[in-house]
Amino acid sequence: MQIATDDPRRPDVLALLDEHLADMYATSPAESVHALDPDALAAPEITFWTARDPEAGDLLLGCAALKRIDAGHAELKSMRTATVARRRGVAGRLLDHVLDAARANGHHRVSLETGTEDYFAPARALYVTRGFTVCGPFEGYSPDPNSTFLTLDLSGR
């Protein structure tokens, strides 16, 4: 598996992000969907990565993004594993890569928003294994019964 920065507007990535958005709207009320569209993911304050399998013709396995909130704080966005790659460790490897990049960029904290529905339980479990803890809404989010807010202190305190 190779993880590298990528363009969220590539055709195979667009298909994965369309699937992601469709699932978000199928599992959460529209006002609780905070996924970004491909153009938003290409913004300068966002770094977007894909995981690919070079031995399978550069097959797209998953994606993740990191949005800079300020010099010390970033937000994890658009974590998604392709259906064909589930249960292969893709999400964990992508998450570790993004957290390493956040540390390298001097961020002291990474936060995220995810759903409260059962559909999101595997994602929440993954985040907890990396040390994320529940927090309140951050950076423009409001309290929402359909949202779980998590944060990770990268400073080691």
Results as ranks from 00 to 15, higher is better:
Met1Cys: 07
Met1Phe: 10
Met1Ile: 08
Gln2Met: 11
Thr5His: 01
Thr5Arg: 02
Asp6Met: 02
Asp7Glu: 06
Arg9Asp: 05
Arg9Val: 03
Arg10Ile: 00
Arg10His: 04
Arg10Trp: 00
Pro11Asp: 14
Asp12Arg: 07
Asp12Gly: 08
Val13Gln: 01
Val13Arg: 00
Leu14Asn: 04
Leu14Ile: 08
Asp18His: 04
Glu19Gly: 05
Ala22Glu: 13
Ala22Arg: 15
Ala22Asp: 12
Ala22Gly: 11
Ala22Ile: 07
Asp23Arg: 07
Met24Trp: 01
Ala26Arg: 10
Ala26Trp: 00
Thr27Gln: 05
Ser28His: 15
Pro29Lys: 00
Ser32Met: 08
Val33Ile: 04
Val33Thr: 02
His34Phe: 14
Ala35Phe: 04
Asp37Trp: 02
Pro38Met: 03
Ala40Lys: 06
Leu41Asp: 03
Leu41Thr: 05
Leu41Ser: 06
Ala42Gln: 03
Ala42Glu: 03
Ala42Val: 11
Thr47Leu: 03
Phe48Pro: 01
Thr50Cys: 09
Ala51Lys: 00
Arg52Gly: 11
Arg52Val: 15
Asp53Val: 09
Asp53Leu: 08
Ala56Thr: 02
Gly57His: 10
Gly57Ile: 12
Asp58Leu: 07
Leu60Thr: 06
Leu61Ser: 10
Leu61Met: 15
Leu61Gln: 15
Ala64Gly: 13
Ala64Arg: 05
Ala65Glu: 02
Leu66Asp: 09
Arg68Leu: 14
Ile69Arg: 07
Ile69Pro: 00
Asp70Glu: 13
His73Glu: 09
Glu75Gly: 10
Glu75Met: 11
Leu76Val: 04
Leu76Arg: 02
Lys77Phe: 05
Ser78His: 06
Met79Asn: 05
Arg80Ala: 15
Arg80Cys: 14
Thr81Ala: 06
Thr81His: 02
Thr81Arg: 01
Ala82Pro: 12
Thr83Gln: 15
Val84Met: 05
Ala85Leu: 13
Arg87Asn: 14
Arg88His: 14
Arg88Gly: 08
Gly89Ile: 10
Val90Pro: 04
Ala91Leu: 08
Ala91Gln: 05
Gly92His: 09
Gly92Pro: 08
Asp96Arg: 12
Asp96Lys: 07
Val98Cys: 02
Ala101Tyr: 00
Arg103Pro: 12
Arg103Gly: 13
Arg103Glu: 13
Ala104Ile: 04
Ala104Leu: 08
Asn105Thr: 12
Gly106Cys: 14
Gly106Pro: 13
His107Phe: 15
His107Thr: 05
His108Met: 09
Arg109Ala: 14
Thr114Leu: 04
Glu117Met: 12
Arg124Ile: 07
Ala125Cys: 10
Ala125Glu: 13
Leu126Val: 09
Leu126Trp: 06
Tyr127Leu: 03
Val128Asn: 01
Val128Met: 06
Val128Ala: 15
Thr129Val: 00
Thr129Ile: 00
Arg130Gly: 04
Arg130Pro: 01
Phe132Lys: 02
Thr133Asn: 03
Pro137Tyr: 06
Gly140Ile: 13
Pro145Val: 10
Asn146Lys: 08
Ser147Tyr: 05
Ser147Phe: 07
Ser147Met: 09
Ser147Pro: 07
Phe149Asn: 05
Leu152His: 11
Leu152Thr: 13
Asp153His: 03
Leu154Ser: 07
Leu154Asn: 06
Leu154Trp: 04
Ser155Val: 14
Arg157Ser: 08
